[in-house]
Amino acid sequence: MTRYILQRLALLPLLMVIYSFVIFVIIQAPPGDFLTAYVATLASSGSSISQEQIEAWRAQYGLDQPMIVQYWLWVKHLAHGNFGLSLEYQRPNAELIGEQIGLTLALALFSFFLTWAIAIPAGIYSATHPRSIGDHILTVVNYVGVATPNFMLALILMWVAFAYFDVSVTGLYSPEYADAPWSWGKFLDLMAHLWLPALVLGIAGTARLSRIMRANLLDELNKPYVVTARAKGMKEWRLVLRYPVRLAFNPLISTIGWYLPMLFSGSLIVATVMNLPNIGPLLLRALVNQDMYLAGGILLIYSFLTIVGTLLSDVLLALVDPRIRVEG
């Protein structure tokens, strides 16, 4: 068990090296380099910068050197926690990302738990009441949920709230808490705002998970061990929760491997539409403005979160399934 986890952990740095290289190749692909763009931005805003400063940066990032050297310098800076400087915001990238990463994680994780809290009871109900009216309604909701793109749902909700209830559902805080220091009140205010974007973000996943839960549970309910348990004289609902639900759960845990990453990436769209503090919109602006080190830093964080998500699901699966625990 410990060996299995260590093996998976050892893979993490290797993957990060591969990703960082791919990301670097992508972000430096557009023509022109970061400094030329930077000088141009400064010139257009009327300010200027000394030639020495430009030369110093050019040397620091190795911009006159081949790509592989530039990559090496970038990685070296990253290793020291230096994510470089944002040309658009004129601030260190680490600071910009740091401000938003907390709420980015909060949104994705909150959405994750919301999804599970809805999808699993729904799936259990559907599987234990197949072809009932409730099952049919859930099926329709699931199909529509999967078919509706995140941003579309966000748009519809925002429009309905604005046009019919005259409320704004964008942002994560009420105005009075926006710049206030952390307090219990601010936390409650955050929760009051967070659930709607979390729901929007999680709707497609909720639909997919409850379909998976339904299918798995239907399969498990037909297995002989259910008959054995029934023949013991167990109460039906206790039996269902203890045996088939428990077994139907395992494949669901392996979905964490793609679902958490999907939430991290998906939050980009929802946050952009609903104007939430999140590294997603930051990435979008950075890409459009060719703020390459900021974009690179954020992409690297997305990759890291994705790998951690996959790792988490592997470890959890090993924890709950004795068949993997004993043999792995």
């Binding site: 993957l15 591969i18 990703y19 990301i23 992508i26 972000i27 692909a29 557009p30 023509p31 793609w258 990453p261 999907m262 991290f264 990436s265 998906g266 980009l268 769209i269 997603g280 990435l283 979008l284 890409l287 459009v288 060719q290 974009a295 954020i298 992409l299 997305y302 990759s303 979160l305 994705t306 790998i307 996959t310």
Partner: peptide, 20 residues
Amino acid sequence: ELLQSVPTIPIWLALSAALP
């Protein structure tokens, strides 16, 4: 495995931003 653990939307965005 490598491709499946890519953060899809951010990478797609970066790739299409890199198009000339």
